[in-house]
Structure formats: structure tokens, C-alpha cells
Design a protein around this nucleic acid. Structure first.
Lengths: 296, 296
DNA sequence: TAAAAATACTCCATAGGTATTTTAT
DNA sequence: ATAAAATACCTATGGAGTATTTTTA
């Protein structure tokens, strides 16, 4: 097998055209270089050099191959360059997944400060449903993902980022719009609108409905939280909205639920084996402190 | 220093994603591959792989570097390919020098049959004055050169190709035009036209003039044998022409010289150390047999 | 004769093998 | 408990050094 060392010896010889001096330039003895070049000629099966005692000259093939060798050695140096610049974990790119019912409310809060803290880091944000995020995180397409706990995947580790309350969203002229808080019995007979299959928020809300003994409106399923909000405003029904997504408006009211008080917990997840451990820990801490200041 | 082997191990691992199986594919034991990969990571100073006991995954840097590695290995394979196709000495290219007073008369005789014998060989023919040819042959720009003997350069070896007589060229209405042969005393008072400085034919003719005690026309020096011939036809003077260049015509006569009977010897020269020894010997033999049939 | 490359021979570094341990699921 | 990678330790290949010979200009 051809070695990078062999190529370097050939390059040195092609430039210096003297075994002794080329060997010196390679920091080896003259016989060492002679031997390797000879071996290279044998493995390739072609004469690379014309030798006399007064001059060394490359054959045509030798020149062609030496040229190629230079290109190859340059590319190996490039690998070293890539490695050197990749050594700084706070540079390069990081791909973070986030599910759709959290993304538009969390990202505006955290991405601007994070970009400021890590100016050499490019944040790629991938908005997908939880199941896809877990898959992509597992097979390395993502470095990390914001997910609602629990996640049944023990190759992951996570930091809890924040705890988020669910509020009941009702139209401004709904009978419950003026309530200060809601209890289970207040919801009797209500028509709860939910998201389509696949959203973790749907599952969380559905579970809550079950506990509160109200049923889902089977005729409608929204594809986004924003659609859901518009349907509520239109008076089609009520829904559950996580606190971060509770954008105030005159046509809509958000009312806290008590007994049970529903919450979801958001964590930042990454592979235990991730090469970006340190960076991800730091990012998690930063996001936690940002969210603390939001007082959910 | 990074080895091609290291790169191959990394490539195998990037494709197979299993240390044991990748090692098997590289025909080494699993620890051998593990060690080398670990070393590569250490020398580069970056983590290339995420390891768990159930899965191997490349880091971003690992993927980038593995991609580069593939390109590099491909290029090394290309070197092997180049070597393989260069192994056939009867293929590729050969650069042969020839001086200008021989080229237009010799090449039409030898190149067609040689191209037929060596169909995979490209003949590059360089027409330069002898001194330049010797330089170019010395420093490898030429593989061989047709030169008039003797050549004072003992790093060269040569085969004698043919022996060529010089004839006296005179205008058809010159007083000597009807002579069967010429002796020294016949030339008394003649005006000999010669080529410009640098042509070996000039030196050969000049030396002959000296021996025959006739002098050169100082007012005119031709840049080519063809010009010289036209000057002779125009009646400006007489000249010496090598037999190969004696193209018949009604306006010109070529008369043999006797006592002394001038000749030049043409050889094919190449470096003793040339990698194309075998081919050049063969070519020399072919050219000799072609020229034998010309009966000079 | 002198300069340079090739040989001869020895030594050591390191790649590789086997057996075993650690690790993570 | 099991599969897989890492570690430990030994072996062997081959790359490198020194001394010497060969070559050739």
C-alpha cells in the first residue's frame, strides 16, 4: 500500500533532485529515502527516476505521479486544517430540533441571545413532530432537540429547561371567558378542539381531557396551534394552550386550570455519546436562565 | 503523520459503522482498527466518532474528514492506474529531437513506419539546432535525439543510424553541372554558400571548405537548406548538400565529391540512464533497417 | 578520484494479534 | 446478560540508522 510518507519522499526528490539533500529535508538518512523510493517504484511497477551519480531526474511517469502526490499531500494538510478549526466547539454548526407547538414561542426568546453568546456558531433549527425529532436525533441528523418529557430513549440524556402550564383558551364571549380559574366540573358539556395526530400537544391535551372527563370534537383537527387559536376565536370550541403560546387578544381569553393543574415539562435532549456534550450543557444552562426570567 | 491506512480505516468505519466488521473488511483485528482510529483522533485533536456499545456514529467533523479521505484514496488509486498503464513502454509518448537540416528529409521516411509499428506511442518531434537538442536531452525534456557524431557528452549513449555522403549542388548552367565527379582542384575560385551560425551542417561544410581550400561567401548566410538550394538555383553560388536532401530538379545538379569524399554520420542519442532504454534500442534498430533500404 | 546512490546489517518503533476487561443496553 | 469497543500485553514487520560498497563521471 502506498504511504503518505512515500509520496512526500517522492515530492522532496522531485524538487531537490538529490537523494542526500532530499533525505535531509525529510529528516531521514539517505539510505532510508533511497529504500522507500525503490519500494515505491517496485509496488507501482514503474521507474520513477533516472539515477546517475551526478544527477537525479524524474521520468515522465515520475513527474506525473509526483504532481499527483503534491495534490494528495495538500489534501491531507487540508484535513488537518479542518480538524484544527473544528477543535473549537463554539464554532461550526449545531442542528437543534424543536416540535411545532413550541418552536414559534420559544425560539424568538432564546435564539437572539444564544447567537450573541456564540457568534461563531450557526444555529440550524429543525421543526418537526416529536417522533421524527427522536429518530433524527438517534441517527445523528440532529445534535439536540427540545422535547417534552418523558422520552423513552435511554441513549439520550437531557437537561430540564422549563415547566409550562396549560391554560384553557376560550372565545371572549364564551360563558367561561370571565372566570378567574377553571375546575373539572366547569367543563361539562364543552367541545374541546385538538391538533391533528402526531403532535405531542395533542397527546398531552387528550390525556388531560380524559382526566377531566370531557371529550374531543371529532369533526375538526387543527394542523397548528395558530389555526386552533383562530377556531377558538371563531367560537367553534375551546382548547388547551401552553402558557408560552398564550398571546393576548380582545377576542380570546386564557384561563388557568386548577385541580388538576396541567403542565408539561420541556427538556433539551442529546445523545449520551454526543461529541458536543460540553457545548450542549452550556446551551441548556443559558436557555434555563433565559426562561427563568420569563416567570412562567 | 496521517497514513493512507488510517484514512482507509476511517472510510471503512464510516461505511460499515461497526468496529469489528470494519476491521474484518480491512483484514485486521478489531483492536488494531480501534487503536489506529483512536490515534488518528489524537493526532487530529478532534473526535471523529461517537461510540456506544451498540452503535458507531460519525461526528460532523468525522463525516467531513471521511469524505475527504475517500477522495484522497481515490486519487491514490489513480496513481496506481497511471503506473499500470505506464508499464507498457510501447505506449505513452516519446519526445525525439532532430536538427533542421535532417528533419524534413529523414522524418518522412521513418515516422510513418514507426507509427505503424508502435500504434500506442505518440511521437513528438522537436526540430532544433544541435546545441539546444543536447541541452534538452541532458535535462530530460527529450527522450532521444538524432545528432551528427561525434557528440562530446558521455552521459549519452547512441546507436549509429546511417552514414550520409555530401554532394556538391550547382546550378544547372554552372560550369561544373555536367561533371561526373568533383576533385579538390576543380573548385578553385568557387563561391561557397553556407547556412547561418548554429547549424551543424554549416560546421561540417566549413570544415570541408577548409580542407578543399575554398572560401565561404561572406555576404550571404541562409537560414535553411531549402533557401540555400534556391540560392544555388539562382546562380548565386554553389553549396554542399547531404545526400538525403538532394531533391532532383532541372535547374540544379548534385555532383559527388571524391578525394576527399565528405560524409557525416547520424546517430540516435539518449541518456545512459534513460528509463526508455529498451524502446529506444528497438527504435534505433528499426530506423537503421529503414535507412539501409534507402541505399545511401 | 570523488561524489553520490545502493547494499548490508542491525535496531527499534509501531502496527497487529490474542486474551481480557470495561461499558452500555 | 450480552454485544461491542477498549485495554493490556506480546509479537513481528518494516522503516530507519550506521557502515560500507558500488558506480560513474
Amino acid at each position: 500500500m502506498i504511504n503518505t510518507r512515500d509520496l512526500q519522499y517522492l515530492i522532496a526528490l522531485s524538487e531537490i533532485k538529490h537523494f542526500g539533500k532530499a533525505a535531509e529535508a525529510c529528516f531521514v538518512s539517505q539510505p532510508a529515502l533511497s529504500m522507500q523510493i525503490k519500494k515505491l517504484e517496485e509496488t507501482l511497477g514503474v521507474q520513477l527516476l533516472e539515477r546517475t551519480n551526478k544527477s537525479v531526474m524524474l521520468t515522465d511517469q515520475g513527474m506525473i505521479i509526483a504532481e499527483r502526490a503534491k495534490l494528495i499531500i495538500n489534501q491531507i494538510d487540508e484535513i488537518k486544517e479542518i480538524a484544527k478549526s473544528a477543535k473549537d466547539p463554539f464554532s461550526g454548526e449545531i442542528r437543534i430540533g424543536i416540535f411545532p407547538t413550541l418552536a414559534p414561542y420559544l425560539l424568538p426568546l432564546i435564539i437572539p441571545p444564544l447567537s450573541k453568546i456564540y457568534p461563531k456558531l450557526s444555529f440550524y433549527l429543525i421543526e418537526e413532530q416529536t417522533a421524527h425529532l427522536i429518530e433524527q436525533l438517534k441517527d445523528g441528523k440532529l445534535h439536540a432537540a427540545f422535547l417534552a418529557t418523558p422520552v423513552e430513549e435511554n441513549t439520550f440524556t437531557h437537561s430540564v429547561i422549563f415547566d409550562e402550564e396549560f391554560l384553557l383558551a376560550v372565545s371572549a364571549n364564551h360563558r367561561l371567558a370571565k372566570s378567574k380559574s377553571i375546575r373539572q366540573q366547569d367543563l361539562k358539556g364543552e367541545n374541546v378542539l385538538l391538533l391533528e395526530q402526531g403532535h405531542c400537544l395533542r397527546d398531552q391535551a387528550l390525556e388531560l381531557c380524559h382526566r377531566m372527563q370531557v371529550s374531543e370534537n371529532q369533526n375538526f383537527r387543527a394542523t397548528s396551534l395558530e389555526t386552533l387559536r383562530q377556531m377558538v376565536i371563531a367560537g367553534v370550541g375551546i382548547t388547551l394552550v401552553p402558557k408560552l403560546a398564550c398571546i393576548p387578544g380582545k377576542n380570546i381569553a386564557y384561563i388557568p386550570l386548577i385541580s388538576p393543574k396541567p403542565r408539561r415539562t420541556i427538556g433539551l435532549f442529546w445523545r449520551k455519546s454526543s461529541a458536543k456534550q460540553g457545548l450542549l450543557h452550556q446551551i441548556a444552562e443559558k436557555v434555563i436562565s433565559i426562561m427563568d426570567r420569563q416567570s412562567l
